[in-house]
C-alpha cells in the first residue's frame, strides 16, 4: 500500500462509511464538484450523487441545523466547515440544539461536524483557530482531534458511527504533511482513548494535534540529554481519557501539557485539575503547560511563530520539570 496523507485518510473514511451505510450523507460548502476547499470530499459527488453530497449556500447555521434535522430522519450527516473557525456562525445549533437534543428530548443526533483548524500556515485570525474548548465545554458534544493519518481515518469512522454529535478538528498543517501506510483491512479507532506515542520514565507530555509532532521532536532532543519523556496523544478531548493520563503520571510522576489552543481555558487547566484531584500524591513537581499565547492568531510569520508553541519551548519546560 502506498502511504496516504491525512486528508486522503479522511476521504477514505468518508468513502468507506458512505459505502457501508446508505444513511451517511455529506453536507457543506463547496464539497460537491469542487471537492471541498482542502479536497477532503473530492470524487465523492461523482460516486454518491447530489442527494448524498449536498452543496449548500454559504449558511453555516443553516447547514448544521439542517444536518440536525436530517439526523432526526435516521440519516448520519457529516457536515464540513470550510474552516472550523466558521463554526462560530453555527454555534447556536451546535450548543443549543445538537448538544442538548438527547438530554432534553431523547432525540439522538448522530452528526459529525468536521473541518480544518490550527495555525502554522499563515492563515491569520480567522483561518487558524483551535476552537476545541468551545465544544468541550458544551456537555453532549464529543470532540476529536487526530494527529496521524491512521487516527484521522479511524476516529472519523467511529465518530460517524457514534450516536452523539461529534466535532472533528483536523489540523490543516498536518493535512498533507503527515503521511503513512494504512492497513488494507477495515479498522476504527475508539473515541475517548489516548495513544502512547513514545514511552518514557522521566516525565509525561500530554498533547494532541500538531503539537503531538512538536512534542515527539522535543522528546527526541530530550532523550539525547538523558531525559526520557512519555508522549501521550490525547486524540479525543471529550470524553477525555483521564485514566490514561493518570496511569502515565503514576509512572513518571511529572506532567507537562502542550497544546496549540490558547492558554486560558485550554484543556491543560482541566487536565491539571484532574491530576491534582486524582494523583496529587504521585506528583514530584508542578504541572507545567506550554500553549499558544492568549491572543488572536496573528498573521505575519514572525508574529505567528511567536504565538505558536515551538519545539524549543517544550524542551525548555521539560528540562525545568525534569530537575524536580
Amino acid at each position: 500500500m502506498a502511504p496516504v496523507t491525512m486528508v486522503e485518510a479522511i476521504r477514505e473514511a468518508l468513502d468507506e462509511e458512505m459505502q457501508r451505510d446508505p444513511t451517511v450523507v455529506l453536507i457543506g460548502e463547496d464539497i460537491g464538484v469542487y471537492g471541498g476547499a482542502f479536497k477532503a470530499t473530492e470524487g465523492l459527488l461523482a460516486k454518491y450523487g447530489w442527494e448524498r453530497v449536498i452543496d449548500t449556500p454559504i449558511s453555516e447555521t443553516g447547514l448544521i441545523g439542517a444536518a440536525i434535522g436530517m439526523s432526526y430522519q435516521g440519516l448520519r450527516p457529516v457536515a464540513e466547515m470550510q474552516f472550523i473557525d466558521f463554526i462560530a456562525c453555527g454555534f447556536n445549533q451546535m450548543v443549543n440544539f445538537a448538544a442538548k437534543s438527547h438530554y432534553r428530548w431523547g432525540g439522538p443526533v448522530p452528526l459529525v461536524v468536521r473541518g480544518p483548524c490550527g495555525g502554522g500556515v499563515h492563515g491569520g485570525p480567522f483561518h487558524s483557530q483551535n476552537p476545541e474548548m468551545w465544544f468541550v465545554h458544551a456537555p453532549g458534544l464529543k470532540v476529536i482531534y487526530p494527529s496521524t493519518a491512521y487516527d484521522a481515518k479511524g476516529l472519523l469512522k467511529s465518530a460517524i458511527r457514534d450516536n452523539n454529535p461529534v466535532v472533528c478538528l483536523e489540523h490543516k498543517f498536518l493535512y498533507r504533511r503527515v503521511k503513512e501506510e494504512l492497513p488494507s483491512e477495515e479498522y476504527t479507532v475508539p473515541l475517548g482513548k489516548l495513544a502512547v506515542r513514545r514511552p518514557g520514565r522521566d516525565l509525561t507530555i500530554a498533547t494532541y494535534g500538531a503539537m503531538a509532532l512538536n512534542s515527539l521532536e522535543a522528546a527526541e532532543e530530550l532523550a539525547k540529554e538523558g531525559i526520557e519523556a512519555e508522549v501521550l496523544d490525547l486524540r479525543t478531548l471529550m470524553p477525555l481519557d483521564r485514566q490514561g493520563i493518570i496511569d502515565s503520571v503514576r509512572k513518571t510522576n511529572k506532567l507537562l501539557v502542550v497544546h496549540e489552543d490558547v492558554r486560558s481555558g485550554g484543556i491543560a487547566g482541566e487536565i491539571a485539575a484532574t491530576v491534582n484531584e486524582q494523583a496529587f500524591e504521585d506528583l514530584d513537581g508542578p504541572i507545567l503547560r506550554v500553549t499558544s499565547l492568549d491572543t488572536p492568531v496573528p498573521f505575519a510569520p514572525p508574529l505567528e511563530e511567536r504565538f505558536l508553541p515551538q519545539v524549543a519551548d517544550i524542551t525548555r519546560a521539560a528540562r525545568e520539570l525534569a530537575r524536580y
Binding site: 447555521t61 434535522g69 432526526y72 443549543n96
Partner: peptide, 25 residues
C-alpha cells in the same frame, strides 16, 4: 413534535432538515 430551544427561530432550520430527510426517503 420537536422540542424548541430558547434561541429564536433556531427550530426552523431543524424542521427544514427534517423536511429534507422526509423528501429524500
Amino acid at each position: 413534535v420537536i422540542t424548541p430551544a430558547s434561541t429564536i427561530a433556531a427550530q426552523l432550520m431543524i424542521g427544514t432538515g427534517v423536511a429534507w430527510g422526509l423528501r429524500r426517503q
